[in-house]
């Protein structure tokens, strides 16, 4: 924003519900959320509403120090809101018994130690992966992107995303090293069917 209006006036106009001021702040928030690559209009609209409400409450409670323009302040709040939303979405993963850790691991100090050790080993395996695989796992697990969104992000087809997942899984097995060799007694349908190099 390149607003020549003093910040105090911006704030009082916003609090007074002046349409032009609210629209200006809304546009700034929208720009910040677009920069976060939120392309879904409905999701963006929800985050804008949440952000404007937080801005309103923050201004009313006097938390705004006036060391930036109102638009800049609102953009910062938009980024909090986006990040909180991202974290909240991660926590809302549907409960699946297959994904639950064994409860006995949490029930004793030894169990907790084992759990922490397992986490460290998983992290080590993650760091041993090639960069494209790390990028893929972070997009899936941290950002919660769907496979279609991952395809858009990486600029490749959905099939190429699936092949990349496959390759990364193979790379992950390599990172596990000889400690966890692949099973040789798997059913025939589980054997490698062909070369997928160059797919993406």
């Amino acid at each position: 924003m390149h607003d020549a209006i003093p910040t105090t006036q911006e704030v009082s106009e916003f609090l007074a519900g002046r349409r032009e001021r609210i629209d200006a702040v809304r546009r700034s928030v929208d720009a910040a959320l677009r920069a976060m690559r939120i392309r879904d209009a409905d999701e963006r609209a929800g985050l804008i509403q949440e952000t404007l409400l937080r801005v309103l409450l923050s201004l009313r409670s006097g938390r705004f120090r006036g060391d930036a323009s109102l638009a800049t302040y609102a953009q910062r709040i938009a980024r909090h809101v986006w990040l909180e939303n991202l974290r909240r979405r991660r926590e809302q993963v549907p409960l699946d018994p297959d994904l639950l850790p064994a409860t006995d691991r949490w029930s004793s100090p030894e169990g907790s130690l084992l759990q922490a050790e397992a986490h460290r080993a998983s992290l080590k395996r993650f760091h041993a992966l090639p960069a494209p695989c790390k990028e893929l796992l972070l997009a899936i697990f941290v950002e919660g992107l769907s496979y279609r969104e991952v395809a858009v992000r990486l600029g490749i087809s959905v099939m190429a995303v699936r092949l990349r997942v496959f390759r990364c899984r193979l790379a992950g097995r390599g990172a596990e090293g000889v400690a966890a060799p692949a099973k040789q007694d798997a059913a025939p349908e589980h054997r490698v069917e062909g070369d997928v190099k160059g797919a993406d």
């Binding site: 699936r162 099973k183 349908e189 069917e193 997928v196």
Partner: peptide
Amino acid sequence: MLNWGPGAGHPALLPWYVAGT
């Protein structure tokens, strides 16, 4: 080595299944 990728009859979407997305 096992193949759970495309064409093997196993879902290639397991990471997204685990992520709940």
